[in-house]
Amino acid sequence: MKNKLPVGCPSCQNQLIVKSLICEKCGTEVNGLFELPELARLDINEQLFILDFVKASGSLKIMAQKLKLSYPTVRNMLDGIIYKLKESDTAKTE
C-alpha cells in the first residue's frame, strides 16, 4: 500500500510544508522549507478526480459516465474543488 502524502498538520490542522527531499538513487538530500504545489494540497479523492477529469479531456459528460453519477453531481464536485482552490488563493494573498 502506498503511503498517503499528509497535507495537514495532525496536531493543529495547519497546512504542512516540505522540509526535505531525497534522491532515491544516490541518497542526496535537499533540506529547506518548500510549499506543497496547490494540487497536492487537495485531498486524495479530489486529486484523483482532477486526474480523471484531465484524462477525460475536461468533459463532465464522460466523467459522469465513468463515475456512474449524474452530470450535475459531477459538476458540483468540480465546482467544490474550484471553490477550495479559490479559497486557498484568497488565503494566500491575505
Binding site: K68, L69, S70, Y71, P72, T73
Partner: peptide
C-alpha cells in the same frame, strides 16, 4: 436518486 440520474433521462 438525482445523484445518479438527471438531465434527459430524469
Amino acid at each position: 436518486p438525482f445523484i445518479y440520474i438527471a438531465g434527459y433521462a430524469s
